[in-house]
Amino acid sequence: MNGLRKAYGGKVVLDSVDLTIREGEVFALLGPNGAGKTTIVRILSTLIPPDAGTAGVMGHDLLAEAGAVRAVIGVTGQFSAVDNLLTGEENMLLIGRLLHLPAAERRARTARLLERFELGEAARQTPATYSGGMKRRLDIAMTLMGRPRLIFLDEPTTGLDPRSRQTMWQQIRDLVAEGVTILLTTQYLEEADQLADRIALLDRGRIVAEGTPEELKRRIPGAHIRLRFADLASLDAAARALGASMDDGEELELRVPYEGGVRSLREVLARLGDDIPVEDLSVQTPDLDDVFFALTGNPSKE
């Protein structure tokens, strides 16, 4: 996609977004509330037109060949898109009919997908009786009915408990193993780190960083050891011993670069000696939270 723009009543929601997603990869769009993730998904899935810019999906122009695009994509939006008056099974069969699948295939795929997403027992109940996780899984099962080659998953695990999240992650990995391309959006840094081959950080309608999780991690200050002291005197002494600069702020803390391994940790402790009391020590490896903070100057969470 090239130079995608979208504004609602003068408020710019997407500002020249350029992205390339390679076939077969999991691409994560990571951003806080209101960053524009859903807007990108809605544009790429032909729901809304961009104000400017172009995009191709699997070789089809988004605007000129919307029909061809729809034939290769599967969309699981941020909010449940199931028919609440039909049972899980009827929902699946409805989608199968709309995809013009032959009756036998429709039934077979419905049974297989419901089984795969652990909905076999609930197949004859309406989603009104489902838990949030079950609804989400039905949503994804419906999306898979048409064997899409590119799948959009807009915040697939928001609102799920840790166990359901793990299950969902595994199911997403299974999809990847089948060779589909996935565009995933998430507010969870850990999720992007876990699942994505490449990540784009979106902040207020702009891509602020893009790369593999490792590349992004490299772009911020490296790992460090964090030391906390009981009083100012020990802090001063430790700072002299280590030749480290003191952190701003009121905390009695020091950050020392950490090269990794037990040896470098032991070295730091040796230089502190036995006389300087350390109240607390932790080794911090950068996670995407740090990336976000380093690149946007904002904490990722509101």
């Binding site: 994509i73 199931v82 709309l98």
Partner: peptide, 13 residues
């Protein structure tokens, strides 16, 4: 007002 219409619209219905 529900989500289902978006699903229909992203399909080649």
């Amino acid at each position: 007002t529900g989500g289902i219409v978006d699903r229909f619209r992203t399909m080649a219905v």
